[in-house]
């Protein structure tokens, strides 16, 4: 593909949690995209997609942050997000948020049409089948809710993980059940959230996997935090790290 066409220009929407907690995921995403023949840029005018405001009922702030993101990402062939939930916010919710704003509705639509979650972009749009990566371990995979149900990310990560040499995937029972993160939910209703993540970590432990993967930092922080509190040795990583073969940094929640 890269030989015939000019390299697609991809704008990377890093997401706040990757920006703050785990730059490794951002670099893994850049590597995957560049290896697949894309030119990657990271607009510095990006901040937060506005999901916390949107889901807290603060529509006006959500709209302002949506406009900021739209303006920052105009002109790319594609916008790629290493998160199903921030990706879903841009792809599914921006058009709805700005539908009544004549100056922005069409721009929101345009951005939506060009925006993809990272792994589905690699598999569905770029047609990647082999990552060429290696990971020695048995992993299990949690389907983060927004990626799964808003964007249809389900078999793409599995397809790509199957190409990673040395990797065995043990499917997680209840992989499609929410881990209990839910943004502000986990601190607003800590007891309920705890029961949900407790059920999730029990299922994870049951798979006998040594590594847990998922595609969303929020869920990963939640599940890693719980696994570590329970004293589990299971390593937790964003799926992009394994697909890119960028696993020299400590797993989430582990010391260097």
């Amino acid at each position: 593909m890269a030989e015939k066409h000019p390299a697609p220009r991809v704008g990377l929407f890093v997401t706040c949690l990757v920006d703050l907690f785990r730059p490794t995921v951002g670099f893994a995403a850049v590597k995957l995209l560049e290896d697949a023949g894309c030119t990657v840029e990271v607009p510095s005018a990006q901040t937060c997609c506005g999901q916390p405001a949107f889901n807290s009922g603060d529509r006006r702030t959500a709209q302002e942050l949506a406009r900021n993101t739209i303006a920052a990402f105009e002109g790319f062939d594609y916008v790629v997000v290493p998160s199903g939930s921030c990706g879903g916010q841009i792809k599914k919710h921006y058009p709805e948020l700005l539908a009544d704003d004549p100056a922005w509705a069409a721009r929101a639509q345009r951005l939506s049409a060009r925006t993809y979650e990272l792994v589905s972009f690699l598999a569905d749009v770029l047609g990647m089948t082999d990552t060429g990566a290696r990971y020695d371990g048995t992993v299990t995979y949690h389907d983060s809710c927004s990626g799964l149900r808003e964007l249809g990310v389900k078999e793409q990560p599995r397809r790509l993980l199957a190409s990673v040499e040395g990797l065995t995937l043990n499917e997680l029972p209840g992989a499609e059940v929410c881990c209990g993160f839910g943004g502000t939910f986990c601190v607003k209703y800590p007891d309920v959230s705890n029961r949900m993540v407790e059920a999730k970590t029990a299922d994870i432990q049951g798979t006998q996997a040594d590594t847990l993967l998922a595609g969303d930092m929020g869920c990963l922080l939640n599940m890693a935090g719980k696994l570590k509190r329970e004293g589990s040795a299971i390593r937790v990583r964003h799926v992009a790290e394994v697909l890119a073969g960028v696993t020299d940094t400590p797993p989430i929640g582990e010391k260097a």
Partner: peptide, 26 residues
């Protein structure tokens, strides 16, 4: 690599650790 307690994050750390950031923003 993680916090068992963090000011202002009790809702979180009551039940789980908070993984530490890597040290620099992306």
């Amino acid at each position: 690599g993680r916090f068992a307690k963090l000011p202002l994050a009790q809702g979180w750390t009551q039940y789980r650790d908070m993984p530490a950031p890597e040290g620099k923003t992306f």
